[in-house]
Amino acid sequence: MAIVMSFMTNKDILTGSMPSTFTLDNYVRAFERFPLFQYLFNSLVVSIVIMIGQLVLSSLAAYAFVFLEFKGRDLLFYLFIATMMVPFEASIIPNFQIIRDLGWIDTYSGLAVPFFATAFGTFLLRQNFKQIPKELREASQIAGMGDFKYYLTVVLPVSRASLVTLGIYGFLSSWNMYLWPLLSTTNDKVRTVQIGLKQLQTQEQLNEWGVIMAGAVIVIIPTLILLFFGQKKLQKGLTEGALK
């Protein structure tokens, strides 16, 4: 109920604070005063790039853990588990220095590349790949199909559903990222919409809550839409990836 209420009040603020002019005015002004389109575009690019990067890297890694047998595989698997114990926040200082030394401050690469590799994504897909019958691989081997071709033409299409789940999750969490974009961007050209919202909030005068709220609503609309469509998938994927 608290959630319902707070959603109601958000809308009330938008209409309530400027009753003479109608709501859209706040939006227009938010867009006029801040490069919101640029922020939204930046967020979109960064989130999509991270999403694709995660999908490619985790599906490759998951394939190796499920279908390939080689020495050191188990060791590497433990290495992946170990990555889950290192919070990004705890290693943020050297990460910042690395990005700075690479000249990646204020670039899309600096915002996106550090998040490509994910143990969670790998485990989620590994869980799914394991359900593909082994006979399928044997048959393809007899037909002389190589691993990469099998990965590309059989495994990925069969696992579409969990790839979508991971994609949604990756997009959601990238779009909502806060600390890293705050550190690794210094100008409006690459700044993401979350940091843009902070700018909006700190620079606006106190009595212009309507404009600030308009900004906040713009920020959450894409993720809310995505969540409404992907809710069932996410719920299933997250529980499976987490518990098995």
């Binding site: 959630i3 707070s6 909502n176 909030q201 906040a216 993720t223 995505l226 969540l227």
Partner: peptide
């Protein structure tokens, strides 16, 4: 409704 706050970013939630 209940799950919707998952789609709300830290920045947006904090501003609300």
């Amino acid at each position: 409704m209940y799950s919707s706050t998952m789609g709300v970013s830290v920045a947006a939630a904090s501003v609300f």
